[in-house]
Structure formats: C-alpha cells, structure tokens
Design a protein around this nucleic acid. Structure first.
Lengths: 256, 256
DNA sequence: CCGTGTCGGTTCATTATTTACACCGTTGTT
DNA sequence: AACAACGGTGTAAATAATGAACCGACACGG
C-alpha cells in the first residue's frame, strides 16, 4: 500500500533484543521482498535514520534519530520534564515507573526508572505499547477525543497474554471504569506476572496525550500497596501534564 | 524520485528556528505538491515520526523520534559517552564544544556544551552540518574510506559563506592538510565570525564516523589559544573514539 | 575439492502506486 | 461582502515501486 509507511514500519522491528538486523532477516520479518527492503533501507540510510555496519553488513538505527530527538527536545523538553517525576515516583512507590506518549496509532515508551530493589519489573527502553493491552494504553484511550476513542475500540484487538481484552465490549468496559475511577489497572494484560497502574497525561487540548504508569510484580499487589501507588501517581500525573504545557481534563477525577 | 527519501527529507525542514510547519508552508519549502506532502506527513504520523497539533493543525516532530533515540542509546550509548567529554572540553577551552556523527550524506549534530561566558558561539541543537563547509565535516572527510572520500570530493559544493570551499581542488587541499596535521581548521566557512577546530572520531573499522569540535568567535583566535584548544581536543577525541568502541586510525597523527 | 545453502546485492519488465490538477469548505482579512 | 489563504479531498495520467530470476561471495559438509 503506502510505501512510506511500509518503509517506516521496518524501524519497528528494531528493538532492545534485536538492535541489528540483516537484509534477508528483515525481509523475512516484514514479509516484504528483499529488493524492496533494500531500497527502503538505502533511502532511510541516506537520511540517517538507519545505518549499515561495515563489517557484517547488518543494519541498525542511525545517528539521525538522535538528531531528531535533540531537535524535538529543544523546543518540547518532555524527557527533561518527565525524568525527575519518574525518579520520584519510582522512589516513592518502590516500583518501576515509566512514561509513554501517543505516537502514531500506539504508545511510545519514552522514559523508565527502575527502583533500587532486586525484585522489580523490567521495561525495555523504546518499547511500543498497544493501546488496548496496557494500563497506560487504556488510561490514554479513556481520555482521548470521543471520535479517536471510538476508532481505538473499533480496532481488531490482538491478544498479548491470556488476560488481554480482545473484544470490543471488554475493552469498552475497562475504558468506562477508567473514566469513572480516574486511573487504570492492567492485571497481566501485557506481560505475565506484571501488574500495571496508570494515569493519563493531558495535552493542551484537555485530552490525553500520554500516560504515567507504575508496574509491579503481580505477587506484590495488595490493597494498601495499590492505594499507595495511586496516591503517588495522582500528583505526579498532574505535574507531568502541567510541566508539558497541558491542561488537566475537568472530566478526570480520582475516586478510590 | 524515491518517495521514501523525499518524505524523510521533509523532516529536515524542521529546525530550532522552525519547529512547527503548516501544510502549505512545507509544500512551498520543499517544492512538492500539497497533496503529496499531506500523504507523506500522514504516513509519517501513523508511525509517530511527526504529529499534528490539534489547535492550529501545524506539524512537528513526533514522540516516535524520542522512542527511536532511546532505543539506539540503549544499545549504543553515544550521547551518554560524549556528554561528559564535551563538558570537560568546554570547560578546558572556555569555548563551545560539540560532537557530530555521520548521518546519511551529512553530519548530524548530536551534542553541544556551551561554556559559562557571555561571548560564546551558539550552535543550534540538531543542526545538519555539510561535510565540506565545517571543521567537523572536513575532519571526517579526511579520514573516510578512500572511495567515500572521493564521493564527497565529487559532490557539487554549495557556498554557505564567502569562505566556504566550493571547488573540488580547494576542498581536496583542505582535506590533505587535515590528513597531515591531524586536525581541521574552518575559518568562517560555515558561519561568519565563527572559527572552528575539529578532530575525527573513529569507528570500529578505523575510519571516521564523526567528529569532536570546538567553535570560537573569530575575534578571539590567537596562536596560543588555538594551540590550547588542539591540546584539549586530542585526548578528548581519543577518549570519544575508545568510548564508542572505535579504533583510532594509525594514519591519524597530530603535528602542530 | 566440489556441491549446497545463505547471504547481500543487481537487473528488468510489469503493475500498481504516487502524483498533480482542479475543487471544496472554512477561516480570517480587507 | 468579497477575497485570499489554509487544510483537505477526488480523479485521471504517469511515474515509481515491485518481485522473480539471477549474480558473486562466503561458509559449511561430505
């Protein structure tokens, strides 16, 4: 279909686990012909988005992404604003805190701070979080513009774990609950044994543009621990919204 | 010509000075038809590379670039390695220090540290530096693989200032001088009143993959100041090379 | 030493995608 | 009220993307 999007989707195959990919490998992964993949990679390399190692000819993300990120940070310092908030959140809760922003049709993880304890949740940097399968995603969906929310509900929902909501009804139910409670709970919907709590970050238009989340091992969850996390999350999310120049939604009220 | 490259080139119109661009404006800037630009932006937005503001419909870089940058830093921590080196360099020389990496056909500025004095050179974050018109660029060109170097020399060279080398002969002369001296000098070749000194950073293959540079107001340049900067630059560049997992080139010797 | 598989990369005819023109509705200005 | 500029949409023509076959290089195994 659209060539540009197909090319850019290739970038999503690079991950923490697989930072370098060979031509044939990427062609197999994406299901696109080798020739096409090569042309796309060459084009993206020309612009610095990817680069090819000289020794084994494998491809990886290029220096251009660093430049673009710096450029965005220069006028929109989200990482700088979010990092101290995440650090405080991780310290207060003793759990892994992370932030993500709407990016295309999904959520892009753009900051993680892990607490100083042995048993903690690890979150891969630069992960893409599906809107329907994570606490952050559902928190964002709940406070999207109605027509956008509708579009998310209408998607076909892939099951990530056994707990992932896959029907429109189930997801709508979760979203509704978040709208009344003000925070989102994901019990092993994205990864087994991981329990997530999240709250939306609002943009200047009063709709969600991202989320702040705390992830804990499911075994450690108690009523009290959850309440403590929510209590820490609420001011942190508010601070994040204001720090990014957003406007809190009047519809967002936390009820425990 | 190639659609993907054309689309990605649109990203280069975003800068520190112009972080948000409207559709028609971008069409005018790029010389591409409105329809096409819109489709390309939509495709890139789908992947998170750009996003559209809801209020004035202008476009800007998206959260996806932050994700990609994080991903690259996770496996290749160049910013983390380079920042302390730049800070030391800026302090030692009292001048603006910056680092850039090969990115496509040009050099991408990925780190700047300005000294704590009033009269200093300001360098825009995320700037793209032409290989032929900057100290960094010529330093890199001088220690590229011979065939790549040849390709750079064969380009048509745009004049940025009155001092920019525009003929192949002039550029080759500058490059040769850098190969014997080990460092590069750019006297107002990119910006008036700015004097640049640079040294290459080497990749694992022993060829240049970037540069470390110090920029000073031309009015402040003296023999002694220049010597002091070179003396600070040499160990810094070596440290950068090693810190990034590179191998210093045996052909790189500094002669003052 | 010769098959065999895989790799990155190239060629070229076919096809489907991109493209540009005109047009629409809205907004803000004169 | 007329006008211009903006973001965005349809459609027909043309250009650019596509994928099968192919090439040389390399590694492995008999």
């Amino acid at each position: 279909m659209r060539t540009v999007e197909k090319a850019l989707r290739l970038l999503d195959f690079f991950s923490d686990k697989m930072p370098e990919i060979g031509l044939s490998e990427l062609a197999k992964l994406s299901g696109i012909d080798k020739t096409t993949v090569l042309r796309m990679l060459a084009d993206m390399a020309e612009c610095g988005l990817v680069e090819q190692k000289t020794d084994d000819k494998k491809w990886r993300l290029g220096a251009g992404v660093l430049r673009l990120a710096r450029l965005r940070e220069a006028t929109q310092p989200v990482t700088r604003v979010l990092t101290p908030i995440l650090e405080r959140l991780a310290e207060q809760t003793g759990e892994t805190a992370h932030a993500s922003l709407l990016s295309g049709r999904d959520l892009a993880n753009i900051g993680v701070v892990e607490p100083a304890r042995a048993n903690r949740v690890h979150i891969e940097p630069g992960l893409v979080l599906p809107l329907h399968a994570t606490a952050s995603g559902i928190a964002v969906t709940a406070f999207l513009r109605p027509e956008q929310r509708e579009r998310v509900l209408a998607r076909k929902l892939a099951a990530v774990t056994g707990q992932t909501p896959t029907s429109r009804e189930r997801l709508a139910e979760l979203v509704d609950r978040v709208r009344t409670r003000g925070y989102s709970v994901a019990d092993q919907t994205y990864e087994d044994e991981v329990y997530g709590l999240a709250m939306p970050i609002f943009g200047p238009d009063g709709f969600a543009c991202g989320a702040l989340a705390v992830a804990t091992p499911a075994s450690r969850v108690t009523k009290a621990h959850e309440a403590a996390i929510i209590a820490a999350l609420a001011p942190a999310a508010r601070e994040a919204t204001l720090g990014l120049g957003g406007r809190p939604s009047p519809e967002h009220r936390i009820t425990v």
